[in-house]
Write a protein that binds this DNA or RNA. Structure first.
Lengths: 334, 334
DNA sequence: ACGGGCAGTGGAAGCGCTTACAGCCCAGAG
DNA sequence: CTCTGGGCTGTAAGCGCTTCCACTGCCCGT
């Protein structure tokens, strides 16, 4: 970029840089004649103001960041899209950072923090100490898919009600022997398991302890091979990827779904709909999640005080075939 | 961010800002004693250099951008992940921009261009004139999933050979009446259709004209409802999402896959594997695509001259059930 | 005819950093 | 004992922009 500077524009237009700046940003009065001269000089020089200069002088970046773990799969992409869209509308650029929980992580995040006016942080991506340090430094922050950290805002989707509804639905199918796959005590997932356990308890069923497994198809596959040996009625999974893995495992073991065993997921990723049997799951408003985070962050940047509040977005129970046989009416949505 | 400046550190450490800078970056000699004083001052003040100041002085952003259309779905997320990972390794931040072909697009892109040292542009996201303008300005650019534009590098995945292999495979199944779904003349897809047509020609089959449809499940669904009325042997789709939509349409029409009609996709997104019948498709090395783009861009930024060359990454034909019945041995990979 | 006010403009001080350049001091060489 | 050359440090000139403040005319009211 061999871009010209405001000085060259000023010289070519025969005015001062102050006038050029005013003409360009529309702050302060500029005579039509001058404005025109500047316009022509700008055009001739193909001048675009240096973002660095502008930001330094303005004392702001007009950009915000988002930090997420190395979660491939469809989940994060959708959230990011919603986030970027709103951020763009608000005139901010978006910087992304994926912490593959690597060694240099704290530094990378801090570096990111110096490039933005505010930060959105996904789930349990960052250790609490780092979050606190960032929040203390006065960086506007929004937590995504988890409850608020002191000094921040947060937005996540509803977990407990949906988990209860899903559980009730499964019980109504006559399922009694439950197994829970995917057990990290991350905020979102643990909230769901808690609600499941409570609901099961109401119905006189003792909740099993969730079984640890990576939130991937492979993780679900391996867990499935293990769990299905006990012939449970239903395997509730932490997310759709795990559920898809369990379904693969069931196929390998010659088990029919949902006749021999039911399976449920969470998220409603694209594959959930196209899997056969189609996956009963809970739809999260991923795009809205990202959009809401962007808006909250903007408010903080604009000067709003953090309230340590968590916004909760509604989720939908999506009943498909994998949880048990339904009368035709219930079948597929959309 | 009420961050302290290098001046405060200097004052607290009792040295000049030049020394602080040298101590921090390790340029120039600094006595151990001084280094230690600076270290302590930095720690006490929780000082982090302002990225703006650094960048302005260094004359570089240490960041690069990536521009893509509003493609939701799994495709872009994976590419982005590969891109971000390599960029991070190279010490660069990543700025993303999704042009939902909106009105203010040229400005948004130009704004992005002022924030980065280089830019990766996806497929046909930007009009040629804008690409030319950016390239002319000396901005290092890499084209992704399309052939090189003058003054840039490019990386895409192999289309022709894979399309030929896929077509040959389908012919071997005995399929003769082909239909092609998804017809924009975008680089990647048109290359595939060309190879398909050529291959069909070799076998004495007249290639049909590709049918336009949005590259979404919904688009595939609608196209499928139309196309399947003619009872083709096989519907080749521009990507997996379209193929999944066609499969849904086939189900609605009571057609069995692959017995009544075969369907193929492209990309090998997650849902392709879990769909039943599982989708025969072509796997693109999405992550590698992003990674390669990041590396190419880095070379350009480091000063390499653009060669207008297109790197082509190998793709894999992934044969599953949707293209026709196979002996058990062929079944599912991995 | 005269003063006040305001549109229009330029000067200059930052914003936070890097880095040439110059100066200082001291050890070792002659 | 003087001279020289490093090692170490400070001064200051930018990097490209915004914006406060001061200044010049000119129009208008009286």
């Amino acid at each position: 970029m061999s871009d010209s500077t405001i000085y060259e524009v000023a010289r070519l237009a025969g005015v001062s840089i102050a006038t050029v700046s005013r003409a360009l940003r529309g702050t302060g009065p500029v005579s039509p004649a001058t404005r025109e001269k500047v316009r022509r000089a700008v055009e001739q020089l193909r001048f675009t103001p240096s973002r660095l200069g502008v930001s330094l002088a303005e004392g702001r970046h007009a950009a915000n960041g988002i930090v997420f773990p190395d979660l491939s799969g469809p989940y994060f992409g959708e959230v990011l899209l919603g986030y970027e869209e709103v951020a763009a509308e608000l005139g901010r650029s978006v910087l992304i950072l994926s912490t593959r929980d690597g060694a240099g992580m704290p530094e990378t995040v801090k570096d990111l923090a110096t490039r933005v006016d505010g930060l959105v942080v996904f789930g349990q991506t960052l250790p609490g100490a780092l979050l606190a340090e960032l929040a203390d430094s006065g960086l506007p922050m929004v937590m995504l898919a988890r409850d608020a950290h002191p000094g921040t805002e947060a937005v996540r989707s509803e977990n407990s009600d949906a988990a209860e509804a899903l559980t009730v639905h499964l019980i109504a199918h006559g399922h009694r022997r439950f197994v829970l796959a995917g057990g990290h005590d991350e905020g979102d997932v643990s909230q769901r398991w808690t609600a499941v356990a409570r609901t099961l308890g109401h119905h006189g069923i003792t909740a099993p302890r969730p079984v640890e497994c990576p939130y991937t198809v492979e993780g679900g596959h391996e867990a499935g091979l293990r769990l299905l040996r006990d012939h449970p009625d239903v395997v509730m999974c932490a997310d759709d990827q795990v559920a898809l893995g369990v379904i693969l495992a069931a196929e390998e073991l010659g088990l029919r779904i949902p006749d021999d065993v039911a399976v449920t997921g969470w998220d409603d990723i694209m594959a959930a709909r196209h899997s056969r049997p189609a996956l009963t799951t809970v739809r999260q408003p991923l795009r809205e999640l990202g959009a809401a985070a962007a808006r909250l962050l903007d408010e903080l940047i604009a000067g709003a005080e953090p309230t340590n509040t968590t916004r909760v977005l509604a989720t939908d129970l999506v009943v498909r075939a994998s949880c048990g046989v339904h009368p035709p009416a219930h079948q597929e949505e959309k």
